[in-house]
C-alpha cells in the first residue's frame, strides 16, 4: 500500500505538472500529493492558504480552470518563459504556491488581457496575475530577474511624490536600482529636443491624499502573517 501511494505521488508529480492534465484527483489522492510536495515548499507556506487569499483579491477561484490552455496559446510572452500561464493556475490548484509566486511568468505578463477575453470559463487570468504579483511583492517572493519589479517601483515612486508620472525621475530611479546606466541612452537626446521629456515634474496640488492612498494600500492585508491560521 505504501509502495502504491509512493508510486501514485510520483506519477502525479510528473504527469500533473508536466503534461498539465489530470484534474481528476480524488481529494484523498490530492492530499497525499500535497503533503509530498509541501516538503519542498518553504516552511511557512505550508500553513498559508494562498489560494484563499488570491481568490479574495482577484474575486475568482482558480479551481474553476480546466486547463484547456487557450490562455497560453494566445499569450504574447509565452515564448519568453518556461512556465506557460495556464501552469501557474495549475500550481495554485495543486497548492504549489511558491512555484507560482517565484515564477518569471507572473512578471513577464504584460497585462494585455488576451487570456481573459478568450477564456471559455471567463476566468480573468490577468486579474489573477495582478493578485499574484501583489502577494509576491508583499511577501518578498522574487523571480530571478527583478527588472520588472524595479520598474514598477520607480514608476510608482514618482506618482507617490508628485501625484503624476515624472518620466525623467522614473528613468533615473530605474537606472539607479538596476545599474543599467546606459540603457536607451541613444534615444534620450531626441526626447529632450522634441520636448517629450521634461526635467521638471508636474505636480498636483493635493499631494497629501495621494500619499495617504499609498500608505493605506501598502499596509493592506495580503501579508502572509495576517492570514495564517
Amino acid at each position: 500500500m505504501k509502495g502504491k501511494t509512493f508510486f501514485l505521488n510520483y506519477a502525479y508529480k510528473i504527469f500533473g505538472l508536466f503534461t498539465i492534465k489530470n484534474n481528476n484527483l480524488s481529494s484523498e489522492d490530492k492530499k497525499s500529493f500535497d503533503s509530498v510536495n509541501s516538503a519542498v515548499l518553504r516552511k511557512n507556506t505550508e500553513t498559508i492558504d494562498y489560494k484563499k487569499l488570491v481568490t479574495e483579491i482577484s474575486g475568482q477561484d482558480p479551481s474553476i480552470c480546466y486547463q484547456c490552455g487557450k490562455c497560453s496559446a494566445g499569450c504574447p510572452v509565452r515564448a519568453y518563459t518556461e512556465t506557460p500561464p495556464n501552469r501557474i493556475i495549475r500550481y495554485f490548484q495543486l497548492g504549489l504556491y511558491e512555484k507560482a509566486l517565484k515564477s518569471e511568468t507572473i512578471w513577464l505578463c504584460t497585462g494585455c488581457m488576451t487570456c481573459s477575453s478568450r477564456c471559455p470559463k471567463n476566468f480573468e487570468l490577468s486579474k489573477f496575475m495582478d493578485a499574484l504579483r501583489e502577494i509576491a511583492v508583499k511577501n518578498n517572493y522574487k523571480p530571478k530577474n527583478t527588472n520588472a519589479i524595479k520598474f514598477h517601483q520607480s514608476f510608482l515612486n514618482q506618482v507617490k511624490k508628485y501625484g503624476r508620472t515624472f518620466e525623467f525621475g522614473m528613468i533615473r530611479d530605474y537606472k539607479l536600482l538596476t545599474g543599467k546606466l546606459f540603457q536607451d541612452i541613444d534615444a534620450a537626446p531626441a526626447m529632450f529636443i522634441k520636448g517629450k521629456i521634461s526635467i521638471m515634474p508636474h505636480k498636483i496640488s493635493d499631494k497629501d491624499i495621494i500619499q495617504k492612498i499609498f500608505k493605506d494600500s501598502s499596509e493592506q492585508k495580503v501579508k502572509a502573517e495576517n492570514i495564517s491560521e
Binding site: 483579491i57 497585462g111 496575475m129 495582478d130 493578485a131 504579483r133 501583489e134 511583492v137 519589479i149 520598474f151 514598477h152 514608476f155 510608482l156 506618482v159 501625484g163 503624476r164 508620472t165 498636483i204 496640488s205 493635493d206 495621494i210 492612498i213 499609498f214 493605506d216 494600500s217 501598502s218 493592506q220
Partner: peptide, 18 residues
Amino acid sequence: DWSCCGATSAHATNYLLS
C-alpha cells in the same frame, strides 16, 4: 488637478492602489 491613474504599475502590484 487631475492625478495619475496608476497605469500598469499600480494594477500589477496593488489592487487598492489601482
